[in-house]
Design a binder for these strands. Structure first.
Lengths: 224, 224
DNA sequence: TGGTTCAATTGGTTCAGATTGGTTCGTCAA
DNA sequence: TTGACGAACCAATCTGAACCAATTGAACCA
């Protein structure tokens, strides 16, 4: 069952993924008509329809007689979701690149309500001394800081990283290096970040965040 | 029957929100006539009417035969209260935050094949002098640079931004400020970035990218 | 001044023709 | 025989244009 008979379906899938990647296709976008795809892919209509049926069964597209074929949000979710092979090193590289800037922006524009939510997460991390609980509050804290930027797109990207953090490889790695002592240390670093946010100190927040993430990165991946 | 939003309805909504934001539209203001919208949006009148029916059902507009279509006060309330959709300002903020670092990393780890792809996009932008073509090559160029980092997660986050860039607000805004002269200028800046990549100069690439994006941001949003 | 008329404008409606996904069927190669 | 291919056809939907009815406002006149 490894024949080349899937070429049309593959061509369609790459067409969809490329379209969503370069932004020309979004959820709800109309795909070319079946007859247009026949010409475009130089394939018989029956093959195009067979491929479209698979995509429809996968929930990637939805078809309507007289209207056309449309992308669902599943399509972009499949593309946007973190790839399964994302390595912890990649994740930490992105976090180090992104989160200090996020913290700086949060220090500038956070409201009191934002800060309250952040502090709440900090307190939650303080009282939970087991791995699961601390990890949960840690994720919530970092997300609350991102939310405090009031930049929806930034939040969106932050969530992409967070989905990567939910990958099994990440969990097992973090569980292996997590100790009560390190969690206390992380909590202190969290406190330093939150203090900078409360002081409305963008540079301080960015520095504290970078220091914290470098510490995390060192623990996870070993010192470079 | 959960059809996704039609392009026309989205275009109308952005037209309303932009109008209320820049003050040209207020509660009670008269919208363009259906026939004017047909010309403005290059859409069939049936689609315009379908979109207007939705807006009327939402209470955003009220329609009178022989008089026209008028904004209600609900419209501005929705604009003020609703969570702001990703605005061009947000997008540029994120791009300014992300892409210089991406360029620096690309300068460090790009392969010759990566650079070849980037140069190809640069050449494509040079020969296409219309808005659509240049915009397409521009997106491809920035994405090729992101790809050169060999960090899949970074690529994914980049695609999240690109998806936002495909929003109609962004398109109309960019179309408004795009001129042949500016496109030539952008091309020169692109060339500077690519040169830095070829020189394996991370700082230079980051600087060139930041300079380019600040230029784009200034053109789009006005100088701050 | 006040009223009437009438053409232009605007949202609402209808309908024939084009478009589009879905289906059937004859042909042909493996 | 089996399966794919292509063409014709079907039904749902969209499109564009003409037409309808409500409204407006300017022109006109007593």
């Amino acid at each position: 069952m490894v024949c080349r008979m899937q070429t049309v379906e593959q061509a369609l899938r790459t067409l969809v993924t490329e379209g969503t990647q370069d932004g020309s296709l979004r959820p709800g976008s109309k795909l070319p008509t079946e007859r247009a795809l026949v010409a475009q892919l130089a394939a018989p209509r029956s093959a195009v329809r067979r491929a479209l049926e698979v995509l429809e069964r996968d929930g990637v597209v939805i078809r309507h007689v007289g209207r056309g074929t449309f992308l669902t949000d599943v399509a972009v979710a499949q593309v946007d979701g973190a790839p399964a092979d994302t390595s912890p090193a990649e994740i930490m590289q992105v976090r180090l690149l992104l989160e200090p800037q996020v913290a700086a922006q949060a220090a500038r524009v956070a409201t009191q309500a934002d800060l309250d939510r952040v502090v709440e997460c900090l307190a939650g991390g303080a009282v939970s001394d087991d791995f699961e609980g601390f990890e949960s509050w840690d994720a919530k804290l970092h997300r609350a800081i991102a939310k405090a930027t009031h930049n929806g797109l930034l939040m969106n990207m932050f969530d992409v990283v967070n989905t990567a953090r939910a990958l099994p490889v990440w969990g097992s790695l973090k569980r292996r290096v997590s100790t009560p002592e390190r969690r206390r240390c992380y909590h202190d670093e969290h406190t330093a970040i939150v203090d900078a946010l409360r002081d409305r100190d963008p540079d301080g927040a960015a520095y504290a965040m970078r220091h914290h993430l470098e510490h995390v990165s060192d623990n996870l991946l070993g010192r470079h």
